[in-house]
């Protein structure tokens, strides 16, 4: 069972605020999808290797050569909030 508590935890991990109504709706949706996904349980894959890359590519790199950077103005052009050449965010509390 995928409970509302699970949804709240996953929403928090995903940094998405949900209200009560959304929590109820998503727990129903996710429960339905996950029970469909459960059909994979029918398969024994203990001897199967996972495929995370579909092409057999390897050893792709570049040389240590400098390319031009953006200017400070370009980097900050679309910033939501800025201050003295830096991106500004609510205070990180430690």
């Amino acid at each position: 069972m995928f409970t509302e508590k699970d949804v709240k935890y996953i929403a928090s991990l995903s940094r998405i605020h949900l209200n009560e109504e959304q929590t109820a709706q998503f727990s129903k949706d996710l429960e339905k999808i996950l029970s469909y996904v459960k059909k994979l349980e029918q398969l024994d894959v203990s001897d199967v290797k996972p495929t995370s890359h579909v092409l057999p590519l390897k050893n792709v790199y570049r040389n240590d050569e400098i390319k031009p950077s953006l200017t400070q103005e370009q980097a900050l052009k679309f910033s939501v909030e800025q201050h003295n050449g830096s991106f500004k965010v609510p205070k990180v509390i430690e």
């Binding site: 949804v7 996953i10 929403a11 995903s14 998503f26 996710l30 999808i33 996950l34």
Partner: peptide, 12 residues
């Protein structure tokens, strides 16, 4: 939101 949460769950 649904897919981000589903994916987060699958990796958690």
């Amino acid at each position: 939101k649904r897919r981000v949460m589903l994916g987060t769950y699958c990796l958690s």
